[in-house]
Amino acid sequence: MRDPTPPLTLTAITDRTRTYIRDTFLYMRPDWPLQDDDPLFGSGVIDSIGVMELIGFLQSEFGCTVAEDEITERNLGSIGAIARFVHAKCNADGVRAA
């Protein structure tokens, strides 16, 4: 029997992540110019406590468990990086809405 929920596309992951980051970390600065490849950390959008919250979001939203050695700027340093990481990491199982 086929899974009725299709895998999420890279674009869908990007959109949800962007919305989450704006709602969670930039709610006080809706004017903050954040592009998908802008750094989240050097620019101060997210701090290290926020990283823990972000990882919780990735788990609950995409069912994507992030190992400790995967908590790097390469994987989580921008909205685009997060989307690519989540998409690639979970692609084998299919990334679906949690």
């Binding site: 950390f41 997210i46 701090d47 290290s48 990283v51 908590i71 790097t72 700027e73 989580l76």
Partner: peptide, 18 residues
């Protein structure tokens, strides 16, 4: 006094080094 999980790794260090 900060939660151990939040005070290690690249992001924690980035806060200081940047």
């Amino acid at each position: 006094d900060i939660a151990p999980a939040a005070r290690k790794g690249e992001f924690w260090r980035r806060y200081f080094l940047a």
